[in-house]
Design a protein around this nucleic acid. Sequence first.
DNA 1: CTACATCTATACCAATCGGTATACATCCTC
DNA 2: GAGGATGTATACCGATTGGTATAGATGTAG
Lengths: 202, 202
Amino acid sequence: MKPKTAAAQVGRPRGFDVDEALDRALRLFWRQGYEGTSLSDLTEELGINRPSLYAAFGNKESLFRKALDKYVERHLVLYHQAFALPTARAAVEHLLLGLADAQTLPRGPRGCITVQGALVSGADAVPIQKELAARRAAGEKALRDRLEQGQREGDVPAHVDCADLARYFTTVTQGMSVQAATGASREELRRVARTALFAWPA
Amino acid sequence: MKPKTAAAQVGRPRGFDVDEALDRALRLFWRQGYEGTSLSDLTEELGINRPSLYAAFGNKESLFRKALDKYVERHLVLYHQAFALPTARAAVEHLLLGLADAQTLPRGPRGCITVQGALVSGADAVPIQKELAARRAAGEKALRDRLEQGQREGDVPAHVDCADLARYFTTVTQGMSVQAATGASREELRRVARTALFAWPA
DNA sequence: CTACATCTATACCAATCGGTATACATCCTC
DNA sequence: GAGGATGTATACCGATTGGTATAGATGTAG
């Protein structure tokens, strides 16, 4: 077995780091949304020209999806950390505070790209719009599963509707994304998260 | 003083209802966002052609602002209703449930246009983006004022930070707007609102 | 009916959109 | 070094963007 990528050893080597370029694309889409980011924006920000971009990532939509994958993959760590905590309540607390931090990174765009990316759009971006909606729904579903686990384990009251509770906390995190875009600070977002936790069922 | 518009009685009369056209524009911007709505979308939806649109409303940005004004004006009714209730708690409950309804109108776009319109954007739409952020902030400020009134009147505990509480409930309503875009039903949004109210300070 | 003011319709504008053909540069294999 | 594979750079593509000039249609005022 060859050391790294066995193929692609023939021909002129790529003049840029694909992973770093994808990171830059992610941040641009995150900050300006899918429709608000043009190919010219991208090539300028990535420091490469159009044909290189298309050869490496396919078209704009495909590039966005790759960047989104990277974003989601990073957030999975937080979700796994949170859901591994002993109680559902602790999981939600960890998740909300962690998201407050993630949405106010010092040198990162504000909010969550699944909200900012394309909440609504013209006809062209409908596939992206739906993709993001599906990702948001997946996050809500994962939280619901963890709440139901807590219910089975007895740390969530039996009378609670876990779908409703998951939707509530998901709504708060999504609202935090809007607040981040409006300019709310990390500490303000964390206070929102803590206030939201007061609604935890008795 | 002349009865109504003294001018504009000379020349060919306008062939469309300005107010109805503005309504249609509002719904389109609401559904597709500012950047996602093109002039061709608008002229097709309004049933008028470009020069008529420009003569009546100015450019795209100006049209959006006029539509936004109309939207906000309508929502003021709900805010006034809510804030006139005897307690701050009742005001918030009325507001949240009212917004749940407003964001799931049977034949209307989902969510709130101040969130869907342009949460993020490319460089062109930055003025609109800021305008919408300012409107959201204004709504939060109005709620904060009502909470502080409640505090003075004794129905909100003295230890409560009204700015924090207003930010929390505003965050919930904004999250509801994202949920509406994701496909949440009116009843689901109302349950979110009621769950959020459990965080009301003791 | 004439004169004039306003609105409407078509056709157009430069700029930008996402995407690509073509030519050239740069690397590895032999 | 020669051959071939790959990446990069420029320049371009048709379509669409927001916005407008121009000419014709339709009304009121006199």
